[in-house]
Amino acid sequence: MALKSTDMAKNMAKKLDGSLKSESLPDRFGQASKVQNNKRERAADIPASKLVPVNYRLPADLVSRLREYAVGTDQGINQVVATALNDWLSTQTKK
C-alpha cells in the first residue's frame, strides 16, 4: 500500500526532527558561550594605543610619492605618514 503525500511529508518531518535533536549544539550557543569574554572585557585587553582610521584628501602626486617612498623603505604607507606627522608636530612650537 502506497503512502499518501501528506503521510510521506509527516514521516520526513519526523526524520528531520530526530536528526536535529540528536546533533549537539555548536560552541557559540549554550554553555560554551558563557566562557567567552563579553565585548567590554575584550576591549579592556586591547592596548590604549590602538589605531584609529582617519580620512584625508591629498593631492595625487603627493600620494604617489608617499607610496614610492613607502615601497622603497619597506614600510607601510601608514608608518611613513605617522613618522612624517610626528616629526612635523615635534618641530612646531606650542602657541
Rank of each mutant, 00 (worst) to 15 (best):
Met1Lys: 09
Leu3Trp: 01
Lys4Thr: 09
Ser5Ile: 09
Thr6Trp: 11
Asp7Asn: 05
Asp7Gly: 02
Asp7His: 02
Met8Phe: 04
Asn11Ala: 11
Met12Phe: 12
Ala13Tyr: 03
Lys14Val: 03
Lys14Asn: 08
Lys14Gly: 05
Lys14Pro: 01
Leu16Arg: 09
Asp17Pro: 00
Asp17Cys: 12
Leu20Thr: 10
Leu20Ser: 07
Leu20Cys: 08
Lys21Cys: 11
Ser22Tyr: 07
Glu23Phe: 14
Ser24Asp: 11
Ser24Pro: 04
Leu25Trp: 06
Leu25Ser: 11
Leu25Lys: 10
Pro26Gln: 01
Asp27Trp: 00
Asp27Leu: 00
Asp27Arg: 00
Arg28Pro: 03
Phe29Met: 12
Gly30Phe: 00
Ala32Arg: 11
Gln36Pro: 01
Gln36Asp: 12
Asn37Ile: 02
Asn38Cys: 01
Lys39Tyr: 04
Arg40Val: 03
Arg40Lys: 05
Glu41Gln: 09
Asp45Ile: 10
Asp45Trp: 13
Ile46Ala: 01
Ile46Asn: 02
Pro47Ser: 10
Ala48Met: 10
Ala48Gly: 07
Ser49Tyr: 14
Ser49Asn: 13
Leu51Ser: 14
Val52His: 14
Pro53Ile: 02
Val54His: 10
Val54Ser: 07
Val54Asp: 05
Val54Ala: 08
Val54Cys: 09
Val54Phe: 04
Asn55Cys: 07
Tyr56Val: 15
Leu58Gln: 05
Leu58Val: 06
Pro59Thr: 07
Ala60Pro: 04
Ala60His: 12
Asp61Ala: 13
Asp61Cys: 11
Leu62Val: 00
Val63Pro: 02
Val63His: 11
Ser64Cys: 10
Ser64Lys: 14
Arg65Asn: 07
Arg65Asp: 09
Arg65His: 07
Leu66Pro: 00
Arg67Asp: 08
Glu68Tyr: 15
Val71Arg: 15
Gly72Pro: 01
Thr73Ala: 05
Thr73Ile: 06
Asp74Ala: 04
Asp74Leu: 01
Asp74Glu: 08
Asp74Gly: 05
Asp74Cys: 02
Gln75Ser: 07
Gly76Glu: 03
Ile77Thr: 12
Ile77Arg: 15
Asn78Pro: 00
Gln79Leu: 08
Gln79Trp: 07
Gln79Val: 08
Gln79His: 03
Gln79Gly: 06
Val80Phe: 01
Val81Asp: 02
Val81Glu: 04
Thr83Cys: 06
Asn86Leu: 11
Asn86Ile: 12
Asn86Tyr: 10
Asn86Gly: 15
Asp87Met: 02
Asp87Ile: 02
Asp87Leu: 06
Trp88Arg: 00
Leu89Lys: 10
Leu89Glu: 08
Ser90Gly: 03
Ser90Tyr: 04
Thr91Lys: 15
Gln92Asn: 00
Lys94His: 03
Lys95Ser: 13
Lys95His: 13
Lys95Gly: 13
